[in-house]
């Protein structure tokens, strides 16, 4: 508990730095692009159009059919993108901050934290794309939409935990960057982004139904869809799985990061 308290105290002291780092990333990302931040909306929107076209014609895995496939798909896309971007950028954040770490004392966890926060900011911007798709397809507006905050915030904590682990590990073994890229692609196919395991038929559906519950991302995406798309309250299972995965990931992340952070300087 005192560990967490020390972290929070540090966090408060360096909140402006966190803010400035995020705003730096933001400025650099959109500098010299004409449409600037619009790309955060346009990109997922265009991807959505492509994926809807592909997965409703050539590779139709909907079987019984998913009501409002476009919205179903873009929710999966956006949340998965957040996790992907958050973990991938957090992973190399400590290495990228080497010039800074070598010269001044800064709590080092601020770098992965900043990347995950920046990804969240991007993700929130891209929710405009979700709104556009919902309007375009005439999806009903449910009162349960605010509940989507729960899977989003727990996903943030989960991503942060994974990001902390990865960033610490990458300092010692650069290979992890390459491995993670492969792993995350594999993970994408097991996150029920463009299919619904419940409705999927055949042997593949059988296997998916059995194993997909072990993928935390499935639960976050599922919870978000329940609130936004189906207008349902989150069920008990979703509630506790989302929270448990987040807390476990964060705890492991903090312990790993803390035990290794003093050695970073010798390896970067």
């Amino acid at each position: 508990m005192s560990l967490l308290k020390a972290y929070l105290k540090d966090f408060w002291r360096y909140r402006y730095l966190l803010y400035n780092l995020i705003s730096r990333d933001f400025k650099l990302k959109y500098r010299r692009s004409v449409l600037g931040v619009v790309w955060s909306v346009l990109n997922p929107l265009l991807m959505n159009v492509v994926m809807v076209a592909v997965f409703s014609t050539i590779l139709d895995m909907r079987s019984a059919g998913i009501e409002n496939f476009s919205v179903y798909l873009i929710i999966g896309q956006l949340l998965f993108n957040f996790f992907n971007e958050g973990t991938s950028t957090a992973m190399s954040s400590v290495l990228a901050a080497a010039p800074l770490i070598k010269k001044v004392y800064i709590p080092k966890y601020i770098f992965p934290l900043e990347k995950v926060c920046f990804s969240l900011v991007n993700c929130v911007f891209s929710f405009i794309a979700l709104v556009i798709v919902m309007l375009f397809t005439g999806a009903p507006v449910h009162l349960t939409i605010p509940l989507a905050l729960y899977p989003l915030l727990t996903l943030f904590v989960f991503t942060l935990g994974v990001g902390l682990c990865l960033s610490a590990a990458t300092v010692f073994f650069r290979d992890i960057m390459h491995l993670w890229g492969v792993f995350i692609t594999a993970l994408m196919y097991f996150s029920a982004i463009f299919y619904d395991p419940v409705q999927m038929g055949g042997a593949a559906g059988e296997i998916l139904r059995r194993f997909i519950g072990f993928n935390p991302l499935y639960w976050y995406i599922k919870g978000f869809r329940m609130a936004v798309l189906d207008g349902q309250l989150l069920d008990f299972n979703t509630l506790w799985v989302c929270a448990a995965c987040a807390l476990v990931a964060l705890a492991v992340g903090l312990v790993v990061f803390r035990s290794q952070q003093d050695k970073f300087i010798l390896h970067i």
Binding site: L17, Y19, K27, P99, L100, K103
Partner: peptide
């Protein structure tokens, strides 16, 4: 120690003053 730790060469001086200042805890 080695001046300019935490400067981002792509940012302007104005932006860097704020960034570096917060690095130093201001």
């Amino acid at each position: 120690i080695e001046l300019g730790a935490g400067f981002d060469m792509d940012l302007t001086a104005r932006e860097n003053i704020y960034l570096n200042g917060t690095v130093l805890g201001l």
